[in-house]
Structure formats: structure tokens, C-alpha cells
Simulated scan of single mutants.
Amino acid sequence: MDTFALIVTVGVALLFTYTNGFHDSANAIATSVSTRALTPRAALAMAAVMNLAGAFLGSGVAKTVSEGLIQTPHGDIGMGILFAALVGAVVWNLITWYFGLPSSSSHALFGGMVGAALAGGIGVYWSGVFEKIVLPMFLSPIIGLVVGYFVMCVILWLFRKTNPHRAKRGFRIAQTVSAAGMALGHGLQDAQKTMGVVVMALTIADVQEHNEIPVWVKIVCAAMLSLGTYAGGWRIMRTLGRRIIELDPPQGFAAETTAASVMYSASFMFHAPISTTHVITSAIMGVGATKRVSAVRWGVAKNIIVGWFITMPAAAVAAAVVYWAVKLAFG
């Protein structure tokens, strides 16, 4: 196995993690920034640190990514497929970032893996794709929407006799905790996905024979996600923080708490790689609907949801094109 190919593939995996960080930084902090609970730079710094910490909390999601989605043939074909999958995901991340669309970096990666595998004639574990990717992709936003709605209803009932201005001040402070929890869950989910891909690359290159994650892989993936998070994704932050609905501190707290709870449950109970983007966006919609259904800008929400559905096939096509281009160039 060409060592250079392994180095390049791992490098692209880390680039993907970096784009994932700045693409998805809005997930953790958009609500806190939009409600002025945190300044943008303070929020980004907090999110970067918590992303780093979250990456070391478990390995179940990483093993799901590395074992159950596509075959991992050794040699140049396997490495080429992995390289193409990552490039396809990076391309889609950059396109959606440019247009301010909060699509899922996770599903861009999964779509890239499936598209590159099909282009390379490698088997796809469709049952694994359905159970571990497609099913959670549909269920997690629904859960985020419903739970967000009920959490906000509970908050409104508990604080119904409290002075509104005092309640908002209190929830601004509480949002520092809920935003930190959201960022921790983001690290727990998204850093592990890249760890799983790097482990696949090491296995394909015969550098290791097991699926355990080396410490250095955890460190560099977590560090790149944190660096990307600190770089910030201001375009997407505006979409999540203000274009869906004008959030106030209690709503921001409810949305972040809901999303973080869903991510922890998916990670520790089911080892399911869910999209932090899908969960926080749907939670914001659910929380906003308690004010009145028309308070949510459903036209913006519709465009976001359309982006969710086209992410996997679009990244799959991009990855397939990259694989064929690499094959044509290098035989």
C-alpha cells in the first residue's frame, strides 16, 4: 500500500473534520448568540473547548461508521473509495456553507461513502445504511421537534407567574450551560465520525488489524473539529439563529437542552450517528411553534428540509465523480 495515499486520505479526513467544525459551529452557538446570552467569540471559544472534550467521551459512533456501512477492501481501490468519499463530503459542505444552508456534514460523509463504494464496485451494507443512517435521519428531527415543543410548554407553565424580564435574564445565564452541553454532544457525535473513517484508512492500509481508535487519532480529529468550530460559520449561524424564528433566551435554552439530550441518547444508548444539524434545527422549530405556529418561518424551514433530503444523494454523486476522475487519472 502506498504510504503517500494513506497520508493524503487521512489529511483529507482531517480537512473534512475542519469543514465540519466551521459548518456546524452554528449548531452549538447560534441560539446563544442570537439571544445575546454569549458574545460570538466567547461562544465559539466555549464550543471549541467542549467539542474537544466531547470527542473523548466514547467510541460507539466511530465503530458504527467504520464497521457497518460499506465493505473496506484493502489496497488502492479501498483507499481510493475512502478518498473520493471524503472529497465528495467536503465539496458538499463548502457548497452548503456558501449558501448558508444548515445541511448535515454527517450525511454528506455517509452519502460520499455510499456513492464512492457504488462507483468502485464495492458492496454497500444497505441494511446498515437504513438502520444506522436513514432511520435515525427521519426519527431524530421528529423527536427534536416534538420534545422541543413539550420542553418549551413545560418552561412556559413553570414560569407563568414569573416576571418576564427576570426570567429572560435567568435563562440567558442558563443558556451558557445548555450551549456547552450542545457543543459537548457535537464533539461526541461528529469527531467520532471522522475517527471511524481514519480507522478505516488505517485498516485498509494494513497499518492496524483491529477497529480500536488509537489515541493520536482521537487527539488530531478532536483538535481539527475544535479549530474548525472556532473559525466559525457565520452564514449558517444567521439562518439558525434568526431566519427560522426570532428566539428569546427561554426558547434558546429549551432548543439547546432538547438537542443535547437527543444527541446523548443516540450516542450512548444506540451508538447511532445522528445529525446535530437536523436535531437543533427541528428543536428550534418545535420551540418556536409554542409561541404560535405562524411564528416559525416555514418557508425557510422548507428550504432547510429540502437540503436535508438532497444531501446524501448530492454528496454520493460528487464522490462518484471524484472516484472516476481519480481512476481515470491514475489508472
Rank of each mutant, 00 (worst) to 15 (best):
I274F: 05
S282P: 13
I95K: 01
A266S: 10
A116R: 02
V87M: 10
F270K: 07
V146S: 03
H23T: 14
V12C: 07
A180V: 14
A89I: 06
Q192Y: 11
T72V: 11
H74F: 15
V321L: 10
F56E: 10
R292W: 06
Y323L: 15
G128C: 13
M269D: 01
S106D: 12
S25P: 00
D248A: 05
S34F: 04
G299K: 05
A53P: 01
G181Q: 08
S282V: 07
E209A: 14
V147R: 00
L247M: 09
S275N: 12
T162V: 09
F138S: 00
V306C: 12
R166K: 11
W216I: 15
L156E: 13
E246W: 06
A301L: 10
A28S: 13
S25K: 00
E209M: 14
L57Q: 04
G187A: 12
L57C: 09
A117C: 05
K161Y: 13
V147W: 00
A13T: 04
A119G: 10
I204L: 08
F4Q: 07
G233P: 12
V217F: 11
I142M: 07
V33Y: 04
M195V: 09
N163W: 01
V217I: 14
A222I: 14
I143G: 03
A42S: 11
K327C: 05
A26R: 04
A47Q: 06
M237E: 01
A26Q: 05
S275I: 05
R242K: 10
G288K: 14
V220I: 15
F268M: 02
H107D: 07
T9K: 04
V300W: 13
F16G: 02
F99H: 08
H74V: 15
I155V: 15
R160L: 01
L156N: 13
T39R: 10
I284K: 06
H271P: 08
A260I: 13
M113T: 02
S275D: 07
P250N: 09
M46V: 01
V197L: 08
A316W: 04
N27R: 02
V215S: 08
V91H: 05
V87T: 09
M269A: 12
L240A: 08
A167T: 08
L156C: 10
S267H: 08
K327F: 11
L52R: 10
R292Q: 10
G241P: 12
R238F: 12
Q208R: 10
S106F: 03
A119V: 11
A272G: 05
P164C: 06
L118D: 02
M263F: 09
A28H: 03
